Simulated scan of single mutants.
Amino acid sequence: MLKRTLLIMLAMASLLSSCIKDEPANPECDIETFKVDPQWLTGEVFIDQANRKVLLYLKEPALNKGIAPALTLTPGATVTPASGDSIFFHGAEPPTYTVTSASGENKKTYTVEVVQVGTWKWAFEKWGLHDQDKYQYPVEEDGSVVWSSGNPGIALSGVKKDPAAYPLRETNDSQQGSGAALLETMKGTFLSELVGIKLFAGSLFLGVFDPSNALTAPLKATKFGQPYRGRPVRFTGYYKYTPGANYQDKAGTIIPNMTDSCAIYAVLYAGSERLDATNIKTSDRIIAAAFLPDGSARPNFTRFDIPFTFIPGKEPKGTMMMAIVASSSVNGDQYRGAIGSRLVLDSLQIISAQ
């Protein structure tokens, strides 16, 4: 009996060992976290998985001397250069990290970009095109990217891979120069309608889009703001707006006698952790804001010049972020609006005290 029991135990151990050996190595090769000493940061590090970029917001000393970030990777993956090694920003090309999966079959190269907002003035003359999903996004003159939109999330909904199929795109209908930003409220896709999203409002905002939240918590996926220094005085720019013909609620039901309107605003807030669509108007970290008071139809380019209103008792100091947010449907974050509403933006500027 003992001999039989031992044989069974040996057989089970052999089977278990075989199962362990046969388990495939992890094929994933992502940078999951990229940690920098907070004293050198003006804003949160953001890992843009869709474009394989690490976006850094560094203070001048760190930019000059370099940093030694600590990385965590998907289990079993390796990275070159190693976590904890110093990287520098003096070369003609930005630093890169190459991550190799545990299986050795897959590799990803991440580019490290230092993001700095310069003049706080935008004409939307230069645009980039996402390689895979074919949506457009504004690009700074130096090639950096400080603007985002809902386009990356909409790309997950089965939309056609064509710039014209997305709510944010470039237009040559401009107030000056040859380009401007067009935001259009568009009909949802078959897949989005399955989860109750009947329309996509065109959006444009200073900040980043986190696709990890795009399906489970879409309002948290929009991370508003870029690091800012100074005291803002006015928010200016040009816009034209045409509301769509039929306003609808979240269920897609047409609401008679209701007309869509646009939203354009800027918000200054304290800290480096970005606010999102759930708290950009309500957070107790808000210092000052400038809201377009009337988002109704404007058939021709109209200039706005909105003074910042400061929250009583709050002053701009320490680490701060500035958000600029625009939407072709003011209630687009609640999936309400009119399909066909079109907002064109050009020549935006934050004017600061001297």
Rank of each mutant, 00 (worst) to 15 (best):
N300H: 12
D85K: 05
K161Q: 14
Q354W: 07
N64D: 06
I20P: 02
P138G: 09
T222S: 05
V159R: 01
L343W: 00
A245T: 08
L10H: 14
G202K: 05
A251H: 04
G66V: 04
S283N: 11
S328Y: 02
P256V: 02
L73T: 05
G271W: 05
D173Q: 14
R229G: 10
T72K: 07
R298K: 12
M12E: 11
L204W: 11
L58P: 08
I324Y: 08
K187V: 14
T100L: 10
K108C: 11
K121C: 06
W120L: 01
F190G: 00
G143Y: 06
A338V: 06
P163N: 12
P27C: 01
L10E: 05
K65V: 01
R274D: 00
V54Q: 00
R342E: 00
K126I: 13
D85H: 01
K223H: 11
L182I: 11
K198V: 03
L204C: 09
I254L: 06
R342D: 00
S328H: 07
I255M: 15
M9R: 05
A270E: 15
T33F: 08
S296M: 02
D276G: 11
L194G: 05
G66A: 10
S149T: 12
H130Q: 00
G202C: 03
A289V: 07
Q176D: 14
V145T: 02
A290F: 07
T109R: 13
G237A: 08
G295N: 01
I339T: 09
L168R: 02
Q349I: 03
W122R: 02
Y97T: 08
L345K: 03
L219H: 07
E113K: 06
G244M: 11
A62R: 03
T189R: 05
G252E: 09
A180D: 13
Y57F: 14
A62L: 11
L168A: 03
E28A: 04
E23G: 07
V344Q: 01
P256G: 07
D294L: 01
P69V: 05
D276C: 11
I47V: 07
A217Y: 14
Q175F: 10
S18H: 14
P307C: 07
K198T: 07
G179I: 13
T72Q: 03
Q39K: 15
E28M: 10
I254T: 10
L2Q: 10
F209H: 08
V325M: 11
N213C: 12
P232A: 04
P316V: 00
V195N: 02
R285P: 04
T319S: 15
A217D: 14
K134M: 13
P167G: 09
S157L: 15
H90L: 09
S174T: 08
P94S: 15
S272Q: 10
L7S: 10
S18R: 10
P138S: 08
G332L: 08
I264V: 15
L183R: 07
A263N: 08
L73A: 04
K35D: 03
Q354N: 09
W122P: 03
I31P: 04
Q349W: 00
N279H: 00
T278Y: 13
L10S: 14
Y97E: 06
K314L: 03
L58D: 00
V115T: 00
S174R: 10
N279Y: 06
E113H: 10
S212T: 12
Y135H: 12
A251T: 05
R342G: 05
C19T: 09
L345M: 13
T98H: 12
Y335F: 15
L16I: 15
